[in-house]
């Protein structure tokens, strides 16, 4: 009897850890890793919604991709929207965090208010912003009209549509990044500021010479997170579009790579080509992540 108990206890210590991690690794393997790797396989085939797998195609899908203007257009759009969105987003967040790091009354309330956009429904808010950026009656154009600016066709132009989409993204993420920066700022040793103040450094100088350098790892972290997220940008431009064709405007001026994947694979039923675009996107994200990580190492290595 006692031996049996001991055996059971031994089996428990040996086996239980694996049982505990098994659900995660099994489910991730089947629904995360497998589809990802299988993307490469599908991309090497003529594979369609109707016909299924119609045989090995070699690198045909990739050859098509290289000469497909729509792919390059979507890539430029994705990177462009990212650039237009991320710079003001991080600068605003730094500014707000620095402000909240002062002796502010009701700091807790401000923090809560700034994080509200983060907990909203993305598609719902994209509908609201699409209305705000309407050409004829949109609130943004009406406000601009009061200072004499002609109505902007936000969806029509390349840069104007990027700007409108960037506003939607930044509306959601500025508060979130503000909180992250604020936390990092609160961890900066006060001594540094005291010493700087003793040397007569102004607030502005303290911000640029102490706060920013001390926050570099955090800033880099937020840049990496936004890069990975925004390379897959889909919801905001898809809702901003009219008609749901994933066209990204009449000339595809704001079609992102994920929208193109969706259009080719699910609207046109060309799984093979959709998979090829996804696989290239995957490696672009990995490469951007590696560049960021390398940058992080260089910065950490610097004195």
């Amino acid at each position: 009897m006692r031996r049996l108990t001991r055996l059971r206890a031994a089996a428990d210590t040996k086996g239980a850890p694996y049982l505990f991690i098994a659900p995660f690794f099994l489910l991730f393997g089947v629904f995360g890793l497998f589809p990802l790797l299988y993307t490469a396989w599908v991309s090497l085939h003529d594979w369609s919604l109707i016909g299924g797998n119609e045989g090995f195609a070699g690198l045909d899908n990739y050859a098509r991709l290289l000469s497909d203007e729509k792919f390059w257009n979507a890539l430029v759009n994705t990177l462009g929207i990212f650039a237009v969105a991320v710079v003001p987003q991080l600068m605003l967040a730094l500014l707000l965090a620095d402000t909240l790091n002062r002796a502010i009354r009701g700091r807790g309330l401000f923090r809560m208010a700034l994080i509200i956009p983060y907990v909203t429904s993305i598609a719902a808010m994209a509908i609201v912003f699409s209305t705000l950026f309407g050409t004829e009656f949109g609130l943004v154009n009406q406000v601009l009209g009061t200072v004499g600016i002609e109505p902007v066709n936000w969806r029509g132009g390349r840069f104007s549509s990027w700007a409108a989409i960037a506003v939607m993204i930044d509306w959601r993420w500025v508060g979130y990044n503000t909180l992250i920066y604020l936390a990092a700022m609160q961890a900066v040793p006060r001594d540094l500021y005291e010493a700087a103040a003793l040397d007569g450094a102004s607030r502005m100088r303290q911000f640029f010479q102490i706060t920013i350098p001390m926050l570099r790892p955090t800033i880099l972290f937020t840049v990496i997170v936004s890069t990975i997220g925004q390379m897959q940008l889909f919801t905001e431009p898809a809702v901003f579009d009219t008609g749901g064709a994933m066209q990204g405007g009449t000339q595809g001026q704001f079609q992102t790579v994920m929208m193109l994947v969706f259009q080719e694979a699910f609207r046109y039923g060309d799984y093979g080509y959709g998979a090829a675009i996804s696989w290239v996107l995957f490696w672009i994200i990995v490469a951007l992540g590696a560049v960021n990580a390398l940058l992080a190492r260089t910065i950490k290595g610097a004195p």
């Binding site: 990802l36 299988y38 390379m231 998979a275």
Partner: peptide, 17 residues
């Protein structure tokens, strides 16, 4: 590593699955 992998990119084969 699984956190760093953008699995959403595998959307086409996931649909096949």
């Amino acid at each position: 590593l699984t956190m760093a992998v953008p699995v959403q990119v595998g959307i086409v084969p996931l649909l096949v699955l």
